[in-house]
Design a protein around this nucleic acid. Sequence first.
DNA 1: TTTCATGCAACAGTATATGTTGCATGACTT
DNA 2: AAGTCATGCAACATATACTGTTGCATGAAA
Lengths: 154, 154
Amino acid sequence: MKRDSKLSGILHVLLHMAETESAVTSELMARAMHTNPVVIRRILSGLRDAGFVRSEKGHGGGWKIARPLTEITLRDVYDSLGAPQLFSIGNRTESPECLVEQSVNAALGRALEEAKALLLDRFGTVTLAQLGEDFHARMLASGKTIDLEQSHAI
Amino acid sequence: MKRDSKLSGILHVLLHMAETESAVTSELMARAMHTNPVVIRRILSGLRDAGFVRSEKGHGGGWKIARPLTEITLRDVYDSLGAPQLFSIGNRTESPECLVEQSVNAALGRALEEAKALLLDRFGTVTLAQLGEDFHARMLASGKTIDLEQSHAI
DNA sequence: TTTCATGCAACAGTATATGTTGCATGACTT
DNA sequence: AAGTCATGCAACATATACTGTTGCATGAAA
C-alpha cells in the first residue's frame, strides 16, 4: 500500500498558515509543498467542515485558521481527515467461517486495537501550538528565517 | 493502499499445518485459502529460511512445522516475513529541508514509534501454541470439526 | 465586467499487494 | 531409467488506493 501522507501534509500546511495573519491561497501552499492546489483544498475541506479553518473566495481570499492553536490537537486533525486507516497490515478476511482464521483475527485484532488506542491517545495530547513552538525552537537553533516560498526551495 | 494480509494469511496456514502430522502441500493450502499455491510458497519462504518450517520436494513432500509451537511467537513470524510496514500513514518527506516539516515528522514519528513498540511487544507475547488453544476452544464451543478442505468450503 | 480564489467531479498516474504462468530442480514411485 | 509430484523462482498480470491533473461552476473583490 502506498503510504498515506495526508496527516503529515495537512499539519505542514496548518503550521505555515499559523505563521501569517493574512489568508493563504491553496495555490501558494501548493507551490511550497510541490504539489497541486486541488490536493491542498481536498485535504483542508474536512477541517473546514469541522470549523478548524475557514476559506474565502475571490480577491484576497484563501485559508485562515479559525481557532486558537492551543485548541487543535493532532487527533482533531486526524478525525477531520475522516480518521483514515492507521495500519497497513490487516486480516485476510473480516468475517471468516474458518475457526482458525477467527482465532488469528482475534489475536491480531487485540494487538492492533491496543496500538491504535495508544496512538490516538498520543495524537490527542499534541496541539498545533506545541508543534509551532517546536518549529520556532528549530528556527532559532538553525538561524534560518520564515518564508513560505524560500524555505521550500530545492 | 491495499492492506497487507501476509501475516494474517501465514498464521492461518501455520495453524492448519499444526493440526496434522504429515506434510501439507502448498496446493492443498491454496485450495483451502482460496488462493494460489505460489502465494503460499512465497509467504512461507521466509519462515523456511528462518528455520521455523521445512519444505520437501517430490512424492510425499510439502511443508511441516520444524519447531515446537510454544517456541514460535507472532513476532517471529512477523520478522520472518521481512518485518513489513505496520502503518499506512507516514511522513510526506523523510528528510525535509523545511523546519516546519521537521517538527511535524518528529511529532508523528514519536507517536508512531511508541505504537510500533507496543504492537511488536504484544506480538512477542503470543505463541502459535496459544492461538492453537484458542482455536480448539472455539471448536469445542461450536461443535464443528477439523477438516482443512471442508472448513473452508463456501 | 474582469480577475481571482474556492468547490467539486471526473479522469490519469503511480505504487504496492496479490494472483498467475512457465519452467527448472529434486525426490519418490514404478 | 522414466514418469509423477512437489517446491523454487522469475516474470508478468491484475486490483486497489493514494496522489496528481484538468475542466468548469460559483462567488467575491477590484
